[in-house]
Simulated assay, not measured.
Amino acid sequence: MSINPAPRPAASHRSLRALIVEDDPLFATVYKETLASAAPGIQIELAANGYLALMSLKTHLPDLIVLDLHMPGLDGVAFLSILKRKDCLLEVPVFVVSSADAEVMAPLRALPHVHVFAKPIRPALLRQLARQTLAESIDQRTSQDEPRHLLHSKLTAFVGGNPALQREIARQFYELTPDRIARLEHCVQQRDLHSLREWCHTLIGTSSMIGAQNLYDQVNTLRDYVDAKDADGIVRQVAAIATELRQIAVMLANEFDLYDEKS
């Protein structure tokens, strides 16, 4: 499908715009409210699939796109392949938020200005990401020669990037760790292989975000055991992942002094 994107209005006369491409009304509403709080006055359009998103691009060019992958009709992967062929759209930042398999997500990280996150993303984190990216969009208007420093999806908790964002990622991981371990262990007790697969998707995205390679490898091993329906292997691997999650949580809490924070 070909598209002829709308011309970009003069920088000084254009409001910030965002496009949310998500077929689940609940997630779409959460994203819309989060972006609105991140940038008061921003104009937000919703599209339930890639085709409707492309139609929107014919009339308005966004400063940010939040994109799901699994959608009816034209899905997120197909939408991205079309989007990134257009020079005028190449630098539009895209936040892919999905629970898709690692094999689907990994190639997307190589695309320019595409940042991949596990679904669900915490609203506070999305708000911080949006503020940073939209602020850079405003700066870009005043100086077209100034390079854009968009957040990379593989930011670790210790190296590079925005300190406030690093702290938010660390806090999210630390607070969610006990619940994640409990849910994993419950899935094992109930022999719920479907839910275990879903947790593998989530934890792979999380480990990629914080740069936890050991956790990433352990979760991939768990997925292999789940696919093979190896009950003993699943029990051993979930125990190993629980230990790794606790160790990372303690490390992040020490690094960012999270113990004294009030919930």
Rank of each mutant, 00 (worst) to 15 (best):
I3L: 07
I3N: 00
P9L: 00
P9S: 01
A10I: 04
A11W: 03
R14S: 05
R17V: 00
R17P: 00
R17A: 05
L19H: 02
E22T: 11
D23A: 06
D23Q: 13
D23R: 15
P25G: 07
L26M: 10
F27Y: 06
T29C: 10
T29H: 08
T29M: 11
T29S: 13
V30G: 15
Y31K: 08
K32L: 11
L35W: 01
L35H: 09
L35N: 10
A39C: 14
I42H: 06
I44Q: 03
A47V: 04
G50K: 09
L61K: 03
P62I: 01
P62S: 04
D63P: 07
I65D: 05
V66L: 12
D68P: 02
M71Y: 06
P72R: 11
V77S: 06
L80S: 05
S81K: 09
R85A: 07
D87T: 14
D87Q: 13
L90Q: 15
E91T: 14
V92C: 13
V94C: 04
S98A: 08
A100S: 12
A102N: 12
A102G: 14
A102M: 08
E103T: 11
M105H: 00
A106W: 03
A106D: 11
L108D: 02
L111M: 14
L111R: 03
V114I: 05
V114T: 06
H115L: 09
P123K: 01
L125A: 01
L129I: 04
L129T: 04
A130R: 15
A130Y: 12
Q132P: 00
T133G: 15
L134P: 08
L134K: 04
A135F: 12
A135L: 14
I138A: 08
Q140I: 01
S143K: 12
H152W: 04
S153M: 05
K154I: 04
K154S: 14
T156R: 11
T156W: 05
A157I: 02
F158M: 07
F158S: 11
G161F: 00
A164Q: 04
L165S: 02
Q166G: 07
R167T: 05
E168W: 00
R171Y: 12
F173P: 10
Y174E: 13
L176C: 10
D179H: 10
I181S: 09
C187P: 06
C187E: 05
C187V: 13
V188P: 03
Q189R: 15
L193K: 08
W199K: 08
W199C: 03
C200Q: 03
C200V: 08
H201F: 09
I204A: 10
I204L: 15
M209D: 07
A212R: 05
A212M: 02
N214D: 14
D217G: 01
D217L: 10
Q218F: 05
Q218P: 00
D224M: 12
D227L: 15
A228L: 09
K229G: 10
D230T: 06
A231H: 14
I234A: 04
V235T: 06
Q237D: 04
A239V: 13
A240S: 13
I241V: 08
E244L: 07
E244C: 08
Q247V: 04
A249K: 02
M251F: 00
M251H: 02
L252K: 08
A253W: 10
E255G: 00
E255K: 09
L258A: 01
S263N: 12
S263T: 14
S263M: 13
